[in-house]
Simulated scan of single mutants.
Amino acid sequence: MTCWPRGIAAAAILGLGAISLIDVAARAEPGVYDDRILFGQSAAFEGPAAALGLGMREGILASFNEANATGGVNGRRLELVSYDDGYEPEKAIANTKRLIDENGVFALVGEVGTPTSNAAQPITTEAGVPFIGPFTGAAFLRNPSLRNVINIRGSYDQETEAWIEHLTADLGVSRIAILYQDDTFGRAGLSGVSKAMEKRGMKLVAEGTFERNTIAVKTALLAIRKAGPEAVVMVGPYKPCAEFIKLAHRLKLDAVFVNISFVGANALAKELGEDGKGVVVTQVVPFPGDTSIPLVARYQKALKIANPDAQIGFVSLEGYMVGRLVIEALGKVKGPVTRAELLSTIKEVGTFDLGGITLSYGPDDNQGMDQVFLTVIRADGSFKPVDRLER
């Protein structure tokens, strides 16, 4: 898709004829045209977190294509401009400014990652641009004072609480170590784990870190192995976490490995191969293979139509849900489509039934879901949803 910069020159290039400054000023809102609405996304499409950005984009596009096939939303088709940030904050900043200032997008959707969201969100907040469905459970994005931020998924605090609850109650584990990415993402996970442990009068037996966009986990593994943990909880994307687990198996570290949803479950299983059996991943969306849930059945159909080669997965399902919320909310906007109206509509409507899965918002609640789901990797690399952990 070609996106022209807004203004008189673009109008002339597009063959719309002469247009006055008054006409330009009168046009609704940035990114809103008579026949389309333009959205932007900055995410990782290359590097160790690429599967996450690609999955989110694939899911969002599936939902947009589905809506566009029946005329879009009130006659406007939905379009997405995506730029690669490589999971690096500085690139996310540049992309965000480009999307807002040059592409003139209506809203940003599907940002991927805590450090990148931490960099991009202040820019969108200052500009009054909706920041919808970031792929992160970071607590700072749940601050109700951020009126332009709309979250879909549960928080990392909710995921980490579920980790410690199931490890202690289901398995009787007391010796827990953590591996985390040494940045705002990893520290958000560490904070959640620490709170969950303190709640139970427990402390971590060891901590290990690695740098973002690397798989340099050997030093962390050796430090954690010395402590003899019964479980290692992990806060990172799929490549370094897979590297850690494979090396841990070679060193005969007999522990339960538990990963956060951001890891990218399907990509993790693929990276692990035969080392994946028994690895736990918490999820914040329903099981993407459970077509008894209307949302999931609709997602699978839309994904295959948009891309016949696409594989169903947790990440693209989350992207699809982001797109569905946008579509549902736009359809309920009364009057002109503006950024402010979209945001107020989400808060005022409050409840959005996506088909067996409900998102709920309120004046001081910008997070749609609270559920955390447990999954375990099988020997063949597939996932099994479970209600409790078993050895």
Rank of each mutant, 00 (worst) to 15 (best):
A127S: 14
S42C: 03
S63I: 08
R36L: 14
M56E: 12
L38Q: 06
V129S: 03
I132F: 05
A50Y: 01
R98V: 01
S117F: 01
A44V: 00
N68C: 12
N68H: 06
G113H: 05
F45R: 00
N118G: 14
L78M: 15
I132G: 06
N65R: 13
G128A: 12
G59E: 10
Q41A: 10
F106Q: 11
N74S: 15
N68R: 05
T70H: 13
A51G: 07
A120Q: 08
A43K: 01
V109F: 02
L78E: 12
A69Q: 14
L108F: 02
L38V: 09
A69K: 13
Q121F: 11
E66N: 12
G72S: 12
G71K: 10
T124N: 08
L99N: 02
L99R: 03
P122C: 14
M56W: 02
G86V: 00
L52P: 02
A119H: 07
T125N: 14
I93V: 15
F64Y: 08
Y87Q: 07
V81G: 04
I132E: 06
G133P: 01
R77T: 14
K97D: 13
R57H: 10
A69D: 15
F39Q: 09
G86D: 02
S63M: 13
V129Y: 00
E58R: 12
G104K: 01
F135G: 05
E58N: 05
G104T: 03
A62F: 08
S117G: 13
A67K: 08
G75F: 10
N74F: 11
D34G: 14
A49N: 07
T116A: 06
N118E: 15
V109N: 10
A119S: 13
G113K: 01
G53T: 05
A67H: 06
V129A: 04
G40I: 04
V32I: 13
A50K: 01
Q121D: 10
P134F: 05
A50V: 03
I132T: 06
L52G: 02
E79I: 09
I60G: 06
I60N: 01
V81P: 03
Y83Q: 07
E79G: 08
G72E: 13
F131A: 08
P130G: 13
Y33C: 13
T96Q: 02
A92N: 04
I100H: 00
I100G: 03
A120N: 04
L61P: 05
G47D: 10
G47F: 00
D84S: 00
G110I: 01
E111N: 12
P130T: 10
L38I: 10
G104Q: 08
A49C: 07
R36Q: 15
P89K: 06
V32G: 08
P89R: 05
K91Q: 09
M56D: 07
N95C: 01
S63C: 14
R36P: 10
F64T: 02
P48L: 12
N118K: 15
I60D: 05
V105F: 07
G128E: 11
Y87A: 04
F131M: 12
L38Y: 02
V109H: 03
D101F: 10
Q121H: 11
D35M: 06
D85G: 02
I37L: 14
I123T: 09
N65S: 15
S82K: 00
S82M: 05
V109G: 07
D35I: 01
G75Y: 11
E79S: 14
K91S: 07
V109T: 11
A107H: 05
I100R: 02
